[in-house]
Nucleic acid binder design. Sequence first.
DNA 1: ATGTGC
Length: 386
Amino acid sequence: MGNSSLQIIAENVSVIASPKTWIEGGAIQQLQTTAKLPGMHRVVGMPDLHPGRGYPVGAAFFSIGRFYPALIGGDIGCGMRLLKTDLSIAKISLDKLVKRLGNIDAPLIEQSDVWRERVRSFQLQDSGFEQSLGTIGGGNHFAEIQQIIEVFDQDIFSAHGLDRKQVMLLVHSGSRGLGGHILREHIDQFGHLGLAEDDTAAIAYWQQHQQALDFALCNRRLIAERICANLATDAETVLDIHHNFLSEVSIDGVRGFIHRKGAAPADEGLIVIPGSRGDYSFVVQAVRGELASHSLFSLAHGAGRKWMRSECEARLKQRYTAAQLSRTALDSRVVCHDKGLIFEEAPEAYKPIDSVITSLQEAGLIKVVAKLKPLISYKTSGGCCV
DNA sequence: ATGTGC
């Protein structure tokens, strides 16, 4: 049976996207180039697919016998953490929350002895990047206060302890400088050739990769704790999912490696797929349908960029001032005192999240559980004045 | 993406 959300590009290259989903030609080209790497057996673009530095973002790659650290990229362990706070929607004021949130950009270990001890309590392996723990970083990373505005599957919703009356917190960050450092050292030594699975360097990479995953997970947890402390609330974690990582798996009895680059796993429980700061986010459950293995047990990780960062300011500054961009069409607040980022991360720079969710739904890969509306998107309090 | 590269 055909599926309008499955686009076959070549024998081992496909994209999960409805015909109306924005897919850049350059991203397809990168996908095809990647498919030709030695040992590469299948590549799949997700509906949020877009061009990256050499390799596409929003895709999963399955190789046999060797793997490619460059495909995972520099932000090893980047991911999403979703929490249900103790704040009740009915009682909050957004202006007050923005004020209470304050500035969360400085190193957490420098905030107090209590925080320093808290960071130490995770007993992370020494990395040299400890001062980045508890900080969001730049680019597309953010923390967002959200409200659940629609529930599509009450059973799954309740089973995960979700509650429409409670304020939600979403944290998107990764391994900061650590992952980049690991990739750079790898590339300096091996270029883009990848590693044979039984090479001693492969064992070393696995160790460093794990360190970055641990660091990134801990970072998101610390960011959430820091935000909750500022907001004088507590929170329960609903999910925490990496979308940049390598895993060793068997697909249809064939052992190999799934590289996920901006792709959420479909086999680790509930997933959140956020839209841009001016769009909704969706909590979804993966469905093990016909296309589950074809799509390498992966899902989109967000809306996906539509415009390159470098072109955003030129395209938008005629239409909006930076100050206007600190409010969105959904009436949410944007905390981003960095003039470059405010344009680069404008809602217009991203695909409509609807097209991404619909594509996954039509492909039979997800069941939509709930829809969340942004209230406050926090990027940074530093940088240039806005 | 990046306690950032030319």
